[in-house]
Design a protein around this nucleic acid. Sequence first.
RNA 1: GCGCCGUUGGUGAAGUGGUUAACACGCUAGUUUGUGGCACUAGUAUGCGUGAGUUCGAUUCUCACACGACGCC
Length: 370
Amino acid sequence: MKIEYTLLKKEKNTEARRGKIKTNYGTFDTPMFMPVGTQASVKTLSPEELKECHSGIILANTYHLWLRPGEDVINHAGGLHQFMNWDGPILTDSGGFQVFSLAKPKDISEEGVHFKNIYNGDSLILTPEKSIEVQNKLDSDIAMSFDECVGFPHTRKYVEDSVERTIRWARRGKEAFHNDRQSLFGIVQGAEYEDLRKHCVEELVKMDFDGYSIGGTAVGEPKDLQYKQVEYSCKYLPKDKVRYLMGVGDPIDIVENTIRGVDIFDCVAPTRLARHGHFYTMQGKKNIKNSQYKEDFTPIEEACDCYCCKHYTKAYIHHLIKCEETFGQRLLSIHNIRFLTRLTEDLRKAIENDTILEYREQFIKNYYEK
RNA sequence: GCGCCGUUGGUGAAGUGGUUAACACGCUAGUUUGUGGCACUAGUAUGCGUGAGUUCGAUUCUCACACGACGCC
């Protein structure tokens, strides 16, 4: 079956939404934070540890799994869930972000995007059809359309042409799509131009996707522009379909964009930052390597219920991270992901109580003014 | 006791008669947004064993002393 999104409640004063998503691998609440497991693994964490972080869904990447081990290997294993021993929902990115991070403009053609295989130097082309074929074989619960994620800054003309191509690619991908157990999302592009975002949404809605993603954010643009891009997208998206904001996961951005109507977030930040010693607290982001933690025998956060905070001290984690022990990276990854899922739990409560604006005010006060 | 070699930041060390003493590690901070994981950026000896001398100028040359390694009695 396809995913089923249920809108449970809209917050009284904002666009924030409380909902739930039913998949073949369980149901999860929205708003929700989704950890990133590019290569069929959320770096340093086991599926059991991820479960304890209360992640409702995880993300894996088409581009990387296409190159290694190859979609057929995973298909022969019985699909991504079986391959990686994760029995919760999985969303796969299409490779569209790698168009932004790896390809140059000259590598992009109407047919698709030309890449060099980093493992053996082969010339490769990723097309909308190929991306969908790979994702069909990976058998994730939610697949993404192949899009072009445009960087910042850019010219209006470039974005105009790019949006049209992304729409054509979305149509080609939808026609190539064959998997009854999987859902497919369209991706809204158009940078900071409201008319282009509106146009993109209208064209995608005509194709009737199972849900919609907001792309082209978190690519170096100022925060206020990011929030506008989300507003210009959510304003035109159908209320009865889920909305996923791609690549955004800074705590304040999760709060701000939930208020603007986003249901799902993903970001590499909690795990990447953890590997470099940073951790989130309600009083802001901190660095465990700082010498002040050398003999601090208290947990990362007293109020946190994660495995890391229940059993380990800052002094111990300070030591582990300075020694580059992977256990330290793992403990902070657990904490950071749990921090973000707790944040979305708070936001869900605030939506139910119609108090999300008060929550934002308090959150900003604690997070930034200390 | 004699001979010989050596002594440069927290560590390993490079180097020069003349503006900011290389590099690495460590240390101190910072950055990271649909991940080409474990990277990048910045700061970190007003100082070259101690004292005296030569010189316009010494960490660099000379002498004495201290400390250390090696060899000989």
